[in-house]
Design a protein around this nucleic acid. Sequence first.
DNA 1: CATATTTTAGAATTTAATTCTAATATGTCA
DNA 2: TGACATATTAGAATTAAATTCTAAAATATG
Lengths: 213, 213
Amino acid sequence: MKTLNATHAASKGRKLSVIQAALACFTEKGYSDTSINDVCRMSGASVGSIYHHFKSKEQLAAAVYLEGIRDYQQGFVQELEGHDRARDGVFAIVRFHLTWVERNPDWARFLFQKRYAEFMGDTEEEFSRLNAEFMARVSGWFRKHIGTGSIRRLPPDLYPAIMLGPCQEYSRIYLSGHHATPVKDAVKEIGDAVWLALGAPSAKKERPGANGV
Amino acid sequence: MKTLNATHAASKGRKLSVIQAALACFTEKGYSDTSINDVCRMSGASVGSIYHHFKSKEQLAAAVYLEGIRDYQQGFVQELEGHDRARDGVFAIVRFHLTWVERNPDWARFLFQKRYAEFMGDTEEEFSRLNAEFMARVSGWFRKHIGTGSIRRLPPDLYPAIMLGPCQEYSRIYLSGHHATPVKDAVKEIGDAVWLALGAPSAKKERPGANGV
DNA sequence: CATATTTTAGAATTTAATTCTAATATGTCA
DNA sequence: TGACATATTAGAATTAAATTCTAAAATATG
């Protein structure tokens, strides 16, 4: 028994060390620019050893992903279900997510931030500029409406996050092929929610305009 | 002039056809499993021709990304700035995003959905299960609180989207290294916004509990 | 202690990205 | 138009990196 456990532990230890080395490499150089040899050097394991534990480079990345997401989800659920009042729960989750990311930036980068980053090695400047201009225009639009008192005043970088975040998340579900609220209904519901989140109390009763919902 | 334009057009045509072929390949088989030869076959261009137009496979992917994001952002800004009343603008954007995704699912997948999908070739079932369980628990928690009347009733799949979307979006900015509202303030602001979006009118004045903000 | 199983090593192979050279097409200008 | 310059295409040659394979070392079992 003890020996069996010991073996398992040793095995798990090696496997884990490879996963951690892989995370470090992926974080530093990105997935494509990390070679299996890089992971060998970083972890001290041999090629054969790595391929014994992981079927392929992609499987290794998947293992890294699963390792991180498990930790995140466990903490998330614990936090959520540890609060009885809805408001407390919601606030706790928001805090949990943000602090988890703050404490585990490498994992978070790998788990949550793999959008386009992978490809943007050189083109980064162009994308950066494109994105900066875009965000400036969005922020400008909001600033204009703060002036009229119809938008609550918030730190400017949060407006896009609050407005687009739910849209993005919904899209992810919609695209995954799992059952999702139909687009038409989602437009209405998410629209309402975003407005509740951003509208100033005095403006909450604004009626839809000519081409509103 | 005409000839010059023709050349440019032809050149752009070729380049564009390669970009479109690449999008098709990436959509069908994923980035890693797409070889340059696949793109050759699909586009009719030769290896040399592709490498003449794009420095590397990653640059090709970047070009695909930029092509799509340009279209998205252009439509977005046009929509946003075409509405004078804040409420109309917000609703218009939500609708724009969702319908854009609906109409351009391949682009959207490539632009917005490149999180973990890339690595999950085989492990997909495990991740699917993990994720389904997680979402079920989150939804369950919300269902419980609808019962008490302190959460507005919405299609269940939208609760996670509305709660987590802004968090994810904020994290993306925070992690990108650009200036972002400090985590502490963001927790408060995003928490408020999410509660405004989800809380029922009757419950809006709930005070924070023992371990609330 | 002998045997079976798991793990490690690293060389050999295979696959796919990238580079290179030459040919072809296209545009410019006298 | 015809000679020259530039941009584009083609595909073979090269290089880099993923994956496989064989055998040795370590570990567990009885």
